[in-house]
Simulated assay, not measured.
Amino acid sequence: MQNTSVRIWDLPTRLFHWVLAICVVALVVSAKMNAMDWHFRLGYATLALLLFRLVWGLMGGYWSRFARLFYTPSQIADHVSGRKDHSTGHSPLGALSVIALLAVLCLQVASGLASDDEISVSGPLTRFVSGEWVSTATWWHASIGQYLIYALVALHVFAIIVYALRGKKLVGPMITGDKLLPPETRSSRDSVATRLYALVLLACALGVAWWVSTLGSF
């Protein structure tokens, strides 16, 4: 049976992906340029994006849900060996990459909120934790955390290149949302109603991020 265009990535997931990528790059640039005001603004924006994704991973389109990110060891082995294709949504290796990157980004944002450079800037959560925790968060944020992100992003880009060389395009579907697949493949909901719902969730996430940003001024 001939393959047909199937909606795999809903619009909220696609926008999250690209806006998060832009924020991560801008965070690195602002840190290297010591533009800390912008670094904090971008950090709060990233916090909002991650909060949105955590909820969207439970309620979003079928292939965007966290339930679709977990594979058994045998499924991972089948995919790596080429015995079976598990790439309708995220492949097993891609799913591991997504989980790792989201986890590290969450930890990086959290550590940034509790960091203090003891010169001019401090995160809004420093007043709520001990000096030892602040020191640990500052160390992690400025060293281990950022290098983990570099490594995971590099691995992500490398995987995209490898898959492209094997004839599997990953960037295109993350732009259009669609893949050519068997017509019986389950598609993701991506209606006006779900997009409006995602917009409400994002507004709530932005509200939480704004509230967190005000904690340091109390």
Rank of each mutant, 00 (worst) to 15 (best):
Q75W: 08
V129W: 05
L199S: 15
H79Q: 07
V6H: 05
K32R: 15
W63P: 00
R189T: 12
V153G: 03
W18S: 00
W56M: 07
D116L: 11
K169F: 08
R41Q: 10
L206N: 01
H79A: 09
W56N: 01
C23P: 09
G94W: 01
G177P: 01
L69K: 02
L11E: 01
L96E: 03
G131Y: 00
A103K: 09
L196E: 08
R41M: 08
W140Y: 15
A151G: 15
Y71A: 06
L105G: 05
L51F: 05
S122A: 12
A142F: 13
M59V: 15
Y163D: 13
A35Q: 15
H141V: 06
V153M: 08
H39G: 01
V208C: 06
L152N: 05
L101I: 10
G57C: 13
V55F: 11
H141N: 10
Y71K: 07
A26M: 10
Y150G: 12
L51G: 10
G172P: 12
A45N: 12
S111T: 15
L170H: 02
G167L: 06
T88V: 12
S87A: 14
A48W: 03
T126D: 13
N3K: 14
S191G: 01
A21P: 04
G177D: 00
W139H: 14
